[in-house]
Write a protein that binds this DNA or RNA. Sequence first.
DNA 1: TTTAAACTACGATACTTGTCGTACAAAGAT
DNA 2: ATCTTTGTACGACAAGTATCGTAGTTTAAA
Lengths: 143, 143
Amino acid sequence: MIRNKTVIRTLLFIRPMESMKKITPTAAELEILNILWNEEPLTVKDIHVLISKSKDVGYTTTLKTMQKMTEKGLLQRERNGKSHLYFSTRAKEETRGRLLDRLVDSAFGGSASSLVMQLLGNKKTSKDELDEIKQIIEQMKND
Amino acid sequence: MIRNKTVIRTLLFIRPMESMKKITPTAAELEILNILWNEEPLTVKDIHVLISKSKDVGYTTTLKTMQKMTEKGLLQRERNGKSHLYFSTRAKEETRGRLLDRLVDSAFGGSASSLVMQLLGNKKTSKDELDEIKQIIEQMKND
DNA sequence: TTTAAACTACGATACTTGTCGTACAAAGAT
DNA sequence: ATCTTTGTACGACAAGTATCGTAGTTTAAA
């Protein structure tokens, strides 16, 4: 049985369909997305300046990552004079939802309530957070 | 009689400092851990049979993955005749907690309540799940 | 005792991720 | 017009993941 995807695509003369792919960003990509979700659009430089505050990384690393993200369809860009303005193509909620689904499936046996239980029992979650979560639930009960 | 082997080995210092490393398992590793968290210990074959039900993968792939996990300290094993019996070294809750923390940090700006909101607003989370979650919260309020 | 079956060990491969360095292009500054 | 700055493009590389194939070892069967 042929398992190699590259081989299969070659044999079938098809290309990977970017639009159909449900891409979940990696950690480095999320760092960039978190910034863009807060303020769009931004240049590579803008983002790199922000990231550099908490992390020592080269400019071309950020650039390359954003180029890859654009290839993948996570970002779009448009020329703005000499440089580009980047913005995210997917709503924050959609991406977060997908990541959450993946975690629920892969680590919590598909049970979202197990995840919440874990979260509420987690020492790292602050009391304020817990109160806030409880309040959210309370509010939802009135639907 | 003490049945928990992880505890025994921890007390006997069978594993060195490796066990201190904070490793977060990958997707393929989680698949194996999910099985072991449910029933321990198991052989490579046991696990491979179970995984094969939902996934087409070679036996040596499962074997190799479990060998790597043992190297990393995620699993431990002991000879059992011709083969080995594997068991996980970390409590389910610890690993889940770490994965959850990572997601909260990387995708939800460190806000656990944002994560819960997202989860509750997620169409994919079933009504039953939602009810269950609400019930959990309700119960926690009585502390 | 030879053989077959069941296992393990280990190397190899393809892909992905994160990271830079270098080369090149465009726009100003001198 | 030439030099400097500010960008982009692109190749390269190390590390890690998932995946198998092949070879070798042990146990059980004939």
